[in-house]
Structure formats: C-alpha cells, structure tokens
C-alpha cells in the first residue's frame, strides 16, 4: 500500500506491504541505516528513533502507522549526510560538525563496537531536548530502554550528563 513517511524533515513516498515495520522500511527501502536491526522485538533499543519528540522502537511499529508523524533518526542530527540529503534538525549545528550529543559520546568513550550507538544517541537527544540538565538518576531512567553489550554504559551516562548546547525540542 502507498505510504508517506516524513523522516528528518524529508517526505518519502513508497509502496510497502502492511506488515513492513518502520525500521525495515527505512533500512531496506530508504537507505536510512542509522537505526539498527538487532533484536527486532523492542527489547534492545538499537532501532530507537524520535517520533514527535518521544523515543520509539522503530522495529515495533508498522511503517503504515508512522504516517503523518515527524520521524527523526541519527542521520538527521548533522547536516552532512549526503546519502539521505537529510538536513539539520538540531538547530545551530555547523556543517561538518557532530551534534553535541555525538561529540559527547566521542569525548567520553560512549561507544565501542558502535552498533547500539545510534539508538543511544537518539535516546540521549530526546532526553536533553526535554531536560537539558538531567540528574544521573533521570539520565539512567531515560536511557534504560537501550542496551549495550560492550559495556560502555558508564561512558554513555557521562556523555549524557556532559553534552552541552542541545536545543530544547
């Protein structure tokens, strides 16, 4: 069936079967591969996207049900992604620079193999856009829907607590 998705500010029209998840539509049809497919059961968080300001597991939502919503993936955080032509959604981030949350993940060793990272970054962005100065407790709660098997969680927490300059969403 015809489906129109608004991802990182861009409208995409495609035809998918009703059973195709938002995650699979993005990855296999639109080449938006930031959200990762790991458990595919809403249990790991690697597919986390921000929809209308809140974090969602894109593996657990049908693409058809995501129509008319404002979907953001990690690609949309920086204005340099030529593959998708995504434009900046972060406001004030200069061309060629990482989003403050991405930079904080680099600065605080918030990643190792990197597979969970796009999901963690999106959860952190959603948190900081709502609450720019979270306590450690608040940050842990906000990020507890994402798993990291490398064990970078402490680095992720440090990144979440130190990222500055995130514009309120």
């Amino acid at each position: 069936m015809p489906v129109t998705l608004t991802i990182n500010g861009q409208r995409h029209q495609l035809r998918v079967e009703p059973r195709v998840t938002l995650l699979d539509a993005m990855r296999t049809r639109l080449d938006i591969t930031g959200p990762k497919r790991v458990c595919d059961r809403g249990a790991c968080g690697a597919c986390t996207v921000i929809i209308d300001g809140r974090t969602y597991y894109s593996c657990s939502m049908l693409a058809v049900e995501a129509q008319g919503r404002n979907i953001r993936t990690v690609e949309g955080l920086t204005p340099i992604d030529s593959a998708t032509g995504a434009t900046s959604r972060a406001g004030g981030v200069a061309q060629g620079k990482l989003h403050p949350v991405q930079q904080a993940f680099c600065d605080h060793d918030g990643l190792m193999c990197g597979f969970c990272t796009p999901g963690f970054v999106m959860s952190t962005v959603a948190l900081l856009e709502k609450n720019p100065n979270p306590t450690a407790e608040q940050a842990k709660r906000a990020l507890d829907g994402n798993l990291c098997r490398c064990g970078t969680n402490i680095g992720v927490l440090k990144a979440a607590l130190s990222a500055k300059g995130v514009v309120r969403g």
């Binding site: 969602y56 597991y57 906000a142 507890d144």
Partner: peptide, 9 residues
C-alpha cells in the same frame, strides 16, 4: 512498565 520507548508506544 518495560522501558521509556515501550511506555511512549
């Protein structure tokens, strides 16, 4: 319940 994402969805 579950996780923030699950409570959002």
């Amino acid at each position: 319940v579950g996780t923030p994402q699950i409570r959002n969805m």
